[in-house]
Design a binder for these strands. Structure first.
Length: 656
DNA sequence: ATAGGGTTAG
């Protein structure tokens, strides 16, 4: 005999031996009596299936599983609901249990249920079991294949999907429209270092050949795939070719621009979306990308307008949107506004906290960032790997070496998070900037995962700051192998040689750069004034005020020299006369932007500038001078962090 | 016969 506890969500009288279905008519008629002997099937046993199904629908999986052994003949539908319940309740052990029952009953060759099982294991992060189900299923319908493709893609096994897809084609099973979306995603979900873009283009061709090029879902996936490969123009071509677009397509294309360093285009496309479409109304997902674009541009006025739009559209209570707002304000130099948005949040998740931590980090408030990190933990929010990237980054900007080491050690010990390349890169950066280059190198040697370009890149960057030729050569050797087309690495190495006066070596590196058809990334600074964004490069570009700007800089330079300013020209990669070098650094884009700000903004207004590269030392010291004797606050965001210049002092404490 | 797809925060 067996007994069941009374489910609390059942209307039950004091007699706990009777189950009642909660029905709309509140019938009190017992459907089946569980005191019956289940091994002796009677007519009422037909209701066990119904009972199990009903329990599943109510979320009482445990009870459904207790009833299951007593149903002599569970139906496909019963198993389906059981499987779905296991995913919903996130219980792998129950899932395995259901799977066992189903196999015992001979249902495991049912392709419909195999699909469901694969989906279940996928959601329960048990990819091996999903594979097993697939392997054991003889009759593999396209649904079964697609389910496995989806599961493997989500788990990051893109290459495996593509191999299986090849097999499927060999056998002659035709793809359907769902197959294409999964295999396209598989191309970018590959953990391998080789780019699978060729594969993606091949599948793109298949899609065109099979006439699937009018389907919004597939086309949007293609846009997204090219976006993730960084092929912005390809994504744009697909987007332009779409006969029908919807919110998701627009959002994907806007995200493509926002994530690939094309924030202007992102905002432009958003404008177009609003003005030219009637059926594609921007949603919260769209707005997140738009906010990212504003953040990238440091376009505060734009960002405020977008914030207004978000409020009008009632999208201001959606977590991702709010986190993006926090970041946008902080990256536009308004840390206090970011904090305000954060304070007003009713609910916070780990991402909201991460936004705030990294915001304080890039503004150089390392201690405050650590404090917020601890506050998050004390609120019961478990840090994610990004939390550690953010907080370690904050330590790095503020030179908090000991604190960073302690946090790094706590990752595994206290939070069970194993450091990834990103975390190692943070540590190398932290130690390297603090001139503990040997220890940074030691960390790399002790890494149990492949260091990769991020880590070597951090080391090379630190070598640039502290002019360590030997280590720089080691790091760059690896980097030239890993990312031969990244001009930045060659330039860093050349910088280091130049500072060490090794001009032959500088020439050699430059030749390497030329041989690969690469160019030094041009320095660019921009400033928002009167709702427009003005962009400057060191090369003369048509700007009506250019002469005026140059004249102002020459005058300032003379004045500064009288007060002890010494031009620092080591960023110049040519072996030139000092005067010539001086002339070059005086034309740096950041100084032009500062001069423009002095002329075109009112006194008392903070000059806010953004730069695409790391601030050079000469620009840094000149801006300090200017902040003092022009009595202006100047806020500069370089590629890594903020510099807040005031009274001749920079918030970075000359440590950046 | 049934089933499933695309964009998003740090």
């Amino acid at each position: 005999m067996w007994a069941l506890h009374t489910p609390h969500n059942f209307q039950s009288s004091s007699a706990s031996t009777h189950f009642r279905f909660p029905t709309r008519t509140s019938s009190r008629q017992p459907i089946c009596s569980l005191t019956l002997n289940p091994s002796n099937p009677t007519k009422t046993d037909a209701n066990y299936n119904q009972l199990i199904q009903s329990l599943c629908k109510q979320g009482s999986l445990k009870r459904a599983l207790q009833v299951l052994p007593h149903e002599p003949d569970p139906t496909q539908h019963t198993y389906e609901l059981l499987i779905l319940s296991c995913s919903r309740l996130n219980s792998l052990s129950d899932g395995l249990d259901v799977h066992r029952h189903l196999a015992d009953a001979g249902f495991d060759q049912d392709p419909f249920l195999a699909t469901k099982l694969i989906n279940m294991y996928s959601e329960l992060d048990s990819i091996d079991n999903a594979r097993k189900v697939f392997d054991r299923t003889h009759k593999r319908t396209i649904y079964v294949w697609n389910a496995l493709f989806r599961a493997l893609t989500l788990a990051g096994y893109g290459q495996e999907v593509l191999d299986l897809y090849h097999q499927m084609n060999q056998i002659g099973i035709p793809s359907d429209r769902f197959t294409y979306t999964y295999v396209l995603k598989a191309c970018v979900a590959s953990e391998s270092l080789v780019s699978l873009i060729h594969k993606g283009k091949e599948i793109h061709a298949h899609i065109l050949r099979h006439g699937y090029d009018a389907l919004v879902h597939i086309m949007t996936t293609l846009v997204d795939m090219y976006a993730r490969f960084g092929c912005v123009s390809y994504a744009g071509c697909v987007f332009d070719s779409m006969p029908v677009r919807n919110v998701v397509s627009w959002s994907a294309m806007i995200a493509c621009y926002a994530k690939n360093g094309r924030p202007f285009e992102a905002l432009e496309l958003f404008r177009e979306m609003i003005l030219e479409t009637h059926d594609s109304i921007p949603n919260s997902v769209t707005m997140v990308s738009v906010l990212q674009a504003c953040a990238a541009l440091a376009a505060l006025e734009q960002g405020k307008l977008i914030h207004g739009y978000i409020l009008r559209r009632g999208l201001d209570s959606i977590l991702p949107v709010i986190s993006a707002l926090v970041t946008m304000y902080a990256r536009c130099g308004k840390l206090e506004l970011g904090q305000l948005v954060f304070d007003q949040m009713e609910k916070r998740d780990v991402v909201s906290w991460n936004s705030l931590i990294s915001s304080y980090g890039i503004h150089g408030f390392g201690k405050r960032a650590i404090q917020i990190f601890k506050e998050m933990v004390s609120h019961g929010v478990s840090p994610s790997h990004v939390s550690f990237v953010s907080v370690l980054g904050a330590c790095s900007h503020a030179g908090l070496v000991e604190e960073g080491k302690m946090l790094f050690a706590s990752m595994v010990k206290e939070h069970g998070i194993y450091p990834s390349v990103e975390h190692y890169a943070c540590m190398v950066d932290l130690l390297g900037r603090a001139n503990q280059l040997d220890e940074a190198a030691r960390i790399i040697e002790e890494m149990r995962i492949e260091p990769g370009q991020k880590v070597w890149g951090s080391l090379l960057g630190s070598c640039r700051i502290h002019c360590n030729v030997e280590l720089a050569e080691r790091a760059s050797r690896r980097l030239f192998e890993l990312e031969p087309m990244n001009a930045g690495n060659y330039v860093l190495l050349a910088d280091i040689y130049a500072e060490a006066n090794m001009w032959d070596e500088v020439k050699r590196v430059k030749k390497l750069l030329d041989a690969r058809g690469l160019q030094k990334i041009q320095g660019r600074s921009w400033i928002e004034a009167k709702r427009k964004i003005y962009s400057f490069t060191s090369v003369d570009e048509p700007n009506p005020q250019m002469e005026q700007l140059h004249a102002l800089l020459v005058r300032l330079s003379t004045e500064m020299k009288e007060r002890g300013y010494m031009p620092q020209t080591k960023a110049v990669l040519y072996d030139l006369e000092p005067e010539e070098k001086e002339r070059i650094v005086l034309g740096h884009s950041e100084k032009l932007a500062v001069a423009f700000g002095l002329i075109n903004t009112s006194r008392g207004e903070t000059i806010r500038i953004t730069k695409n590269l790391r601030l050079c030392e000469d620009c840094h010291s000149v801006t300090k001078f200017i902040s003092k004797f022009a009595d202006r606050e100047i806020l500069v965001r370089d590629v890594n962090r903020f510099h807040h210049f005031k009274d001749g002092i920079c918030s970075c404490g000359d440590y950046w």
